[in-house]
Design a protein around this nucleic acid. Sequence first.
DNA 1: GGCTCGGACTCAGAAAACTGTTG
DNA 2: ACAACAGTTTTCTGAGTCCGAGC
Length: 562
Amino acid sequence: SRWEEEKKEDGVKWTQLEHRGPYFAPPYEPLPENVRFYYDGKPLKLSSAAEEVATFYAKMLDHEYTTKEIFQNNFFHDWRKEMTPEEQEIIQDLSKCDFSEIHKYFVDKSEARKALPKEEKQKLKEEADKIQEEYGFCILDGHREKIGNFKTEPPGLFRGRGDHPKMGMLKKRIMPEDVVINCSKDSKIPEPPEGHKWKEVRFDNTVTWLASWTENIQNTLKYIMLNPSSKLKGEKDWQKYEVARRLKDVVHEIRARYRADWKSKEMKNRQRAVALYFIDKLALRAGNEKEEGETADTVGCCSLRVEHIRLHPRLDGQEHVVELDFLGKDSIRYYNRVSVEKRVFKNLELFVKNKDPSDDLFDRLSTTFLNKHLQHLMDGLTAKVFRTYNASITLQEQLKALTNPDDSVAGKLLSYNRANRAVAVLCNHQRSVPKTFAKSMEILQAKIDAKKKQVEEARQELKKAEDELEDTKDAKAEANVEKKKKLLKRLEEQLARLNVQATDKEENKQIALGTSKLNYLDPRISIAWCKKFGVPIEKIYNKTQREKFAWAIAMANEDFEF
DNA sequence: GGCTCGGACTCAGAAAACTGTTG
DNA sequence: ACAACAGTTTTCTGAGTCCGAGC
């Protein structure tokens, strides 16, 4: 079937690849005459290039970004580069720029789009579908596969995460002349848009991307690649979990080894052993070095600095407590107080000694050195495998501990969510509290209160019916009692379900479950659990997720053990 | 032979788009 | 019946990890 096909030569990813090339962002549409930009209170007609960049800023006006000085400065600097000399002469000060009319124009436009009659919307949908149909698929080794991102990124203002030094810079429009096409030699080579040509067409079957271009902010490559539902991605995903399962077999030896290395005479090895302990116990990321000033200041394990930890010999009744507080990937804060082994604690005291807060905690350690060591311990082992392994094994253990076979499907789903949540907490997957959280929680609480009242009423009615039966002892009264009992039971179940929902919601407030579900949890664990406890897979995975995990659905039965 | 740096890939949360429910 | 809106799914693209080519 789809998941079992002939092996390719080492490093070769496909033998046939055919596609239409990327779908380009639509060209800039100038503003209507009546929508004006004002400088220093006076209307000013901008050149097309300057106007386009102005609209990028205007669109973001009610976003917090535009209040930040770095954003404003970067924007203004790049905007001026797009201006004519005359415009440069006039427009010297961002604070004198008034984009409000332009902003309103786009707000109105988006409102109008939303208010379009049904048929119009339908027409737009059909046009989008046609583009998807034409550009959204490729042929890879005879199979029609969905492409992940078949559109080039439109121009706009760069929005980094966290305190990014480049926020507000102009992201340039991608032209066909910027794009490298990758496909098979004998395929129908994609045509560049009329009057344009590709930067290059190559036939590299050792990579999986269909097209690429260099992005001008960080000067890095961007790719057009396949959708996760594709066979190519699915097999890679499967492989990832197989590596993590192999770690399961040797993790005890590896742990014994790093514990022994806490006493190593080589400082380098000691640091490696303590870092590995963090990676294993706390599921920290490896922490590569980053170029200063190019990105937000974030760290992972190997790049932790002295200022990111505090050592408490004793805290809240626990011994050897390490308090970690740093910004990780995407500038998400990691905060944790964890009691560690005495030897780890003593080592950390040693690593911190005579250092400034901004010095590296593991000054002799790099991710390359760490990964070399791991590779030596197990084929294919790298730092990130520990995250996958610990996430998946945690899910499996939590499911085992939390699932009650006698629960309703809803109850089992709560258990599943809790197991999933334990993993998300471990991996520090957070989200901002949804804007509507408090409100929707109130609504839910009101529902619960109303249901409670109903339950109480039903209880009294039942009591009344029972009293009546006591008096009359007739069949009609008995039937009535049964009826009331049934009603009460149904209402109580409904109440229980609502309570479960409320608990789930509250516990989930700041936790993002999606990332672990999609990237860290071996789907076969979940599928086996569904089969074992009679929970439909659709309750766990939506359509997209089922497509992504098709490989796992095809192979996992209820006996699967990670 | 170690190191740097570009390249290719996975993983990340926010925002937009869509859907289904409710008043 | 229908609009508002809350919840869910999809899209978007930035931010990591890790490898290997080339010096």
